[in-house]
Design a binder for these strands. Structure first.
Lengths: 337, 337
DNA sequence: CTGTTAGCGCTTTCAA
DNA sequence: TTGAAAGCGCTAACAG
């Protein structure tokens, strides 16, 4: 009998529905004999608790929503994996939401998630104002936000120190003896990742180096942007022996372009990226990069969320800084001069 | 007032809860004035229908489950994206389930999905027996299965012609004049993808060519497997000028190994993979491969599922063959002899 | 130690 | 054209 209900079990085991519920949830003592009868009935009828009914009653859906710009992007695919993994272990199911980096779709999804009464939401949001998540928090839904200033909201905010990212990557190049270091900047000054450029500047300043503006093209954050940025670098006719790119995708695009123009990496130009996307390991040469946690970040977010959802953490915003670290691979080497 | 219910709306608009429901769902005529009052109340109270309660009543959760081995694998990440996209458009939310290619976790997830009363499930299953999905189908849940013999189950089965895959890739090499073609075989003869080897053989036979067993190593389906397989090929000391690898990951591993041993691709050895994973475009040289649809396959599966879930398709198994096509990139070239 | 029962928020039948 | 009310399957307060 598929779709048996608690009533069917109760009848078959000759107990009340309450007893069945208590046996299932171990939420109060039930005598061994009765427990046994109930369990037998459950097995015989192939009974499976109705999660929807349970949610309605208990006001807990054991579901969390994950909003990312695009799960097909390996960076977010890794994160989603971490979220799902930790969620599964903690008994939560995850609803995958791709916002496509479009505000409207993000808001639509928030609506859906609120309707479905998810217990928590993890935001990797690009276009949303922080104020737009206020209703979510006020509905009592546990919330984690990545790479954003949480304002005064009671959420868990996971961030990386983007200045440090820029600083680490650039200092690596400086330590290798590079003096003329170019920088491929992020798509927009409004992005949190733009602070990587500040770190770049800081490292240069410390070493009394300078980077002329033509050696600081902006890219669209994707491979094609790196291609175009590298072309601009070459067009500038200014000397450079190294590039710090604000992310791996642009670093890879730049690498291709330089090679197409007869430059050898890293002999002629060293390149550093940021993110450690999957691709980075497999380019030729493999890309030196400033890594940030992905699957682990997802896992961590779930842990924090679970604490909130299960009442083990009551209130107050938390800020968590994610660890970054430089991974030296083949795309960087000593300056030849 | 967050968390307003239909009752609150009814009171505020001075109508019955039934009327509110009818207005929300447009499921029967309601006079303009009343409709208006209800809509105003909804707006003022910030009412949001309670999806859980609705599901309990209507027996439709507007949720589908997606089971893949690993969403961090770009192949499945693309598929998940397609599923989510089509799902969103059709008004369904998707629960992401990674099975890790482990039977136990797959079965656990099926249990969870059944408990949550999803309307449909899409399986990209590796370890499950087809019989294990029978309960799912019998519970009346719309089901799509990829790359598997559906047996006599009433499901939609999406498949690719793996023999053709092997045949196309290999014939491409033969047409380029290669005579000594090696083959990196899949991890196990039990996998559907093993039929690619049959296609490989078929193409060779047609051209009266032959491939000695030492030139047919098996790999673990991942990059590391390709590395080891290529080492075996070199160890065999048999001549070969081309390789057909049963998937891109192994092709890429082989490419790296050969290059590390001083071979140039494609000058010395041409290589063909299968899948067209994201990486394939960005290797050096870019990989020639037999592509199969990913995001589109995901979208298609949802379309079929939606037909079933919404009663527009009543019953009977359907088999859908996915299109494959050869993408020629830089890793293959004419045989030099 | 166990059972009865109200009610979670909604849809839909039945009656008017 | 509208409303009353039953009931989806479950939990938990209350009563015994």
């Amino acid at each position: 009998m598929l779709n048996a209900t608690i009533k069917d079990i109760a009848r078959k085991a000759n107990v009340s529905t309450a007893t069945v519920s208590y046996v299932i949830n171990k939420s109060r003592y039930v005598s061994p004999e009765r427990t046994d009868r109930v369990q037998k009935a459950i097995a015989e009828l192939g009974y499976r608790p109705h999660a929807t009914a349970r949610s309605l009653r208990s006001k807990r859906s054991c579901t969390i929503g994950l909003i990312v710009p695009d799960n097909a992007n390996p960076f977010f695919a890794d994160i989603a994996r971490g979220v799902e993994d930790a969620g599964f272990e903690a008994g939560y199911t995850v609803i995958l939401c791709n916002s496509n980096a479009m505000l409207e779709r993000e808001l639509d999804y928030i609506d859906v998630l609120l309707s479905k009464r998810v217990d928590g939401i993890i935001f990797f949001s690009t276009s949303m104002e922080i104020e737009q998540v206020r209703p979510v928090v006020e509905m009592g839904i546990a919330t984690a936000i990545f790479y954003r200033d949480p304002g005064n909201l009671d959420v868990d905010a996971f961030r990386i120190d983007n200045r440090k990212v820029g600083y680490l990557g650039t200092r690596h190049l400086i330590e290798l003896g590079h003096k003329n270091i170019a920088c491929i900047r992020p798509a927009s000054m409004g992005l949190p990742s733009y602070r990587r450029v500040e770190g770049f500047q800081l490292a240069l300043d410390e070493a009394s180096l300078d980077c002329p503006l033509p050696l600081m093209p902006q890219g669209n954050n994707r491979i094609s942007g790196g291609v175009r940025a590298a072309e601009q670098l070459l067009d500038s006719n200014l000397p450079f022996t190294a590039i710090f790119a604000a992310n791996d995708a642009m670093a890879i695009g730049a690498m291709r372009t330089l090679r197409d123009h007869g430059y050898q990496i890293p002999r002629d130009v060293s390149i550093v990226g940021v993110d450690d996307i999957t691709l980075a390991k497999y380019t030729e040469p493999p890309l030196t990069t400033v890594a940030q946690p992905k699957a682990d970040a997802g896992r961590l977010a779930v842990q924090y969320l679970v604490e909130r959802m299960e009442g083990r953490y009551l209130s107050g915003p938390r800020e968590i800084e994610l660890e970054i670290n430089l991974i030296v691979r083949g795309s960087t080497t000593k300056a030849s001069n």
